[in-house]
Simulated scan of single mutants.
Amino acid sequence: MANVPPPENNPPQPLFAPPPQYGQPHYGQPPQFGEYGQQSQYGQPIPPGFAPYPPEATPKKTLGLVAMIIAIAVLILAALASIVIGTAVGPIANRSGNSFSFNTATLTPEQARAFGATGILIVAQIALGSVAGIAAIVLGIIAAAKKRGRSFGVVAIIVAVVAPIVAFIVYIVSIAATLAPA
């Protein structure tokens, strides 16, 4: 028989160990979270099972700023295009009483050639202005909703909504200023 130490020196081992409690580390592993008695960065003890969260980064305001820049560019370019179009249409429009009309069928060949570039500008103003204006509104709404430049986003929404109104007023004023006398 082998030498077996007396039972006093070798206490009986349990057949199985109870499972660790929820949130408790397994035997031999360091704790994952703070223990009572540990101090957090704020001087408060950290309760077990909770880890301190890192501070949230403030969202960047780039989205709202981009939306605002697009909206301001649309406003300025639409107003400039309205001036060019209005001054080109005004001299060849027909004035009658309190209104005016414009008919391309009555243009001479020279006037039609000159007005061709203005027609391209009209299409570009409507198409590009609409696409860029809608993009500025959508980006402004997203920026305001996600707090990624909320104030810039609100300004972008307002400017993009006001841009076609301003462009139309500038167009009418520039036509009226260049209309031939009745």
Score class of each variant (00 low, 15 high):
residue 172 I to K: 12
residue 39 Q to M: 05
residue 149 G to H: 06
residue 32 Q to A: 13
residue 164 P to M: 04
residue 23 G to S: 14
residue 120 I to N: 15
residue 135 A to L: 11
residue 93 A to W: 01
residue 5 P to Y: 02
residue 86 G to D: 09
residue 162 V to F: 07
residue 18 P to Q: 04
residue 72 I to E: 12
residue 86 G to A: 09
residue 98 N to Q: 11
residue 169 I to A: 08
residue 24 Q to I: 04
residue 97 G to Q: 14
residue 178 T to I: 09
residue 125 Q to K: 11
residue 38 Q to I: 00
residue 108 T to Q: 09
residue 179 L to V: 00
residue 61 K to Y: 02
residue 167 A to D: 07
residue 39 Q to D: 07
residue 61 K to T: 12
residue 62 T to K: 05
residue 144 A to E: 07
residue 176 A to R: 15
residue 34 G to A: 11
residue 146 K to Y: 00
residue 164 P to L: 01
residue 105 A to I: 08
residue 139 L to Y: 01
residue 31 P to E: 03
residue 106 T to P: 05
residue 176 A to K: 14
residue 161 V to N: 10
residue 88 A to F: 09
residue 139 L to E: 02
residue 2 A to K: 07
residue 63 L to E: 04
residue 36 Y to T: 07
residue 179 L to I: 14
residue 144 A to T: 14
residue 64 G to W: 00
residue 40 S to N: 06
residue 109 P to Q: 10
residue 21 Q to M: 09
residue 133 G to C: 11
residue 136 A to P: 04
residue 128 L to D: 00
residue 80 L to W: 04
residue 160 A to G: 02
residue 21 Q to R: 11
residue 49 G to Q: 00
residue 111 Q to L: 13
residue 10 N to Q: 15
residue 22 Y to D: 04
residue 26 H to D: 07
residue 136 A to E: 08
residue 89 V to L: 14
residue 154 V to S: 01
residue 38 Q to R: 12
residue 96 S to W: 11
residue 93 A to G: 07
residue 48 P to F: 03
residue 165 I to D: 10
residue 136 A to Y: 08
residue 102 F to Y: 15
residue 149 G to M: 03
residue 164 P to H: 00
residue 102 F to P: 01
residue 9 N to I: 06
residue 162 V to R: 02
residue 137 I to S: 00
residue 52 P to I: 10
residue 88 A to G: 06
residue 52 P to D: 01
residue 111 Q to D: 14
residue 137 I to H: 02
residue 181 P to A: 07
residue 128 L to K: 03
residue 172 I to Y: 15
residue 88 A to D: 12
residue 23 G to A: 09
residue 78 A to L: 14
residue 151 S to M: 05
